[in-house]
């Protein structure tokens, strides 16, 4: 993996003539996790998609750049709320999808290591329909890890999971994505506090930086400071300030 860059996003976006977010500056610190919190429809996913270079419905005027002045294409890993597994392919082929799509060889040792790291050794030849929701997201995580990209964009990847599986997946992702520049889009303040060293709130068309805890991450689920900050953030979101 090449070194993780800092990413700066600045600009303004409109959706169907309506202001989606006003002049904002989002800073993703190199090698750290940044959370983007906000209610549905606030433009969180639009921001993430802009960084990923994916098509968006909104009109964006501004800049997205890395501190090393290199383009972001080919340096981004992406996990969405849906696991986006190919139902017709085996778990092994799903995990190696990136290499297959680019026509590159995938080192078998590395593939085996990653399958083992996410605890799917005995599932490698199975198909996604034979896996539980949590196991499917493990496959999605393994697929992202195999890409070995320095920037990781997570678009509510754990939101469809049950509470226990979600906490397990958060721990697994945090331990495997250390040292990368990660943007986590979520509507769950608890998730943001547990995993991220920087938290931004996007609501009412504005982006504000909220307080966050310092490392190490992930915080234990019963961490007092994390729970207190989670409550504070939730109150801030509810009050809309």
């Amino acid at each position: 993996m090449s070194s993780s860059p800092e990413i700066l996003v600045s600009g303004i976006a409109h959706l169907g003539g309506r202001l989606l977010f006003d002049s904002l500056t989002l800073q993703l610190r190199p090698g750290e996790w940044t959370a983007l919190l906000g209610p549905s429809g606030s433009g969180k996913s639009t921001l993430l998609r802009l960084i990923a270079g994916l098509p968006v419905a909104a009109e964006f005027e501004g800049h997205i750049e890395a501190d090393d002045k290199q383009g972001l294409s080919g340096r981004i890993g992406y996990m969405a709320q849906q696991d986006l597994l190919l139902e017709w392919a085996t778990i092994r082929d799903n995990i190696a999808l990136g290499s297959r799509l680019r026509g590159q060889a995938c080192p078998p040792d590395r593939l085996a290591d990653i399958i083992g790291a996410v605890g799917l050794d005995d599932k490698a030849e199975k198909r996604p329909c034979e896996l539980s929701g949590g196991q499917r997201q493990r496959v999605a995580l393994a697929r992202t890890l195999l890409e070995d990209r320095p920037v990781i964009l997570l678009d509510e990847p754990f939101s469809a999971l049950d509470a226990r599986t979600r906490a397990d997946m958060q721990d697994l992702a945090a331990s495997h994505l250390v040292g990368r520049t990660v943007l986590l889009v979520t509507h769950d303040p608890g998730e943001a506090v547990r995993l991220c060293s920087h938290i931004y709130l996007l609501q009412d068309n504005r982006l504000v930086e909220a307080p966050a805890l310092s490392g190490p991450f992930p915080k234990p689920v019963d961490d007092g400071d994390a729970l207190a900050l989670q409550a504070k953030l939730l109150m801030q979101i509810r009050s809309g300030t």
């Binding site: 990923a52 994916l54 992406y78 969405a80 990136g98 890409e147």
Partner: peptide, 14 residues
Amino acid sequence: PSGLCDLAHVMNAK
């Protein structure tokens, strides 16, 4: 599915 197209795009698929 648009999600699969997004994933392939980010993966620089041929």
